[in-house]
Amino acid sequence: MKTFTYEKPASVEEAVGFVGAGTRFIAGGTNLLDLMKLQVETPDKLVDISRLDLAKIEDTDNGGLLIGALVPNSDLAADTRVREKYEVLSRALLAGASGQLRNKATTGGNLLQRTRCYYFYDPAMACNKRTPGSGCSAIGGYNRILAILGASDSCIATHPGDMPVAMRALDATIITLTPGGDRRRISIHDFYRLPGDTPEIETVLEPGELITHVELPAPVAGKQLYRKVRDRASYAFALVSVAGLVSVENGKIATAQLAFGGLGPMPWRDSRVEEALIGMAPSDEVFAAAADILLADAQGYGSNDFKIPLMKRTLIACLRELTA
């Protein structure tokens, strides 16, 4: 690990005062320290935000929830309001990592965790995300866990998170404090960036911008689920996953909010899939047509070709359950 200086600010305002290209906030540290040990990340200053007062979950005036960026994944999953009204979020969190990791991993850190692409983790290999301009070893290499949607010629990495997929299905808003002292509200739909030819830039955050909260809108009616398909039954990243909230009225699908993990560089959502379902009587044909819309532009890179049929079957299975 490269050495660094360490700061422990007493307030969010002080925290965003430490801007600099080599500065990183550290929250739970479960992703950043992992990458620092491998010298994938080499910050020269760590700003320890773990003791800031951002670990509360509060009710909002419009019936939603305001989640502090430092709420641990365990506590968010176990919160009774989340368990009762945002089941998809509890389920997504509980499907991720392990009991020990969830106790440390934070809401903000989880949103910003980096890809698990094998080559990104190996500084001996070319990787545009780690070393811009060096090439992409995953194209033509091992890419079983990598993207089938939203990739570019520069990078085919996936966002590996589970919680962010549920947050995207729930239309969450990310609230930040900029180094200039401004509050920003960023819809999760606008938060992540496609790789294009700058895969090292993953979100719209400015350097030194701090996530302070994530806000969820009021809960919606209907059934919710999170289904994660992975190589072993526990403690593994998703191959594909579905976060779904669907309601049925008078035999027709009334509302549908669907987001997908394991498909692309960000938790994926496609309004055309939802439009194809709303107003329709649930049937396997309708579900398959929606899946075909989702996957119309999907492209496999060899070892991840299987994700295309796997995603289609998984979505159909989820929609059966959500409309049953």
């Binding site: 360490y6 550290i26 540290g29 479960t30 320290l33 992992d34 773990s50 365990s74 020990q100 440390k104």
Partner: peptide
């Protein structure tokens, strides 16, 4: 609370 002590910095645990 149980955590993985390998993925945490000592300096962050003084209290």
């Amino acid at each position: 609370r149980r955590i993985n002590s390998c993925l945490s910095l000592a300096v962050m645990h003084q209290d």
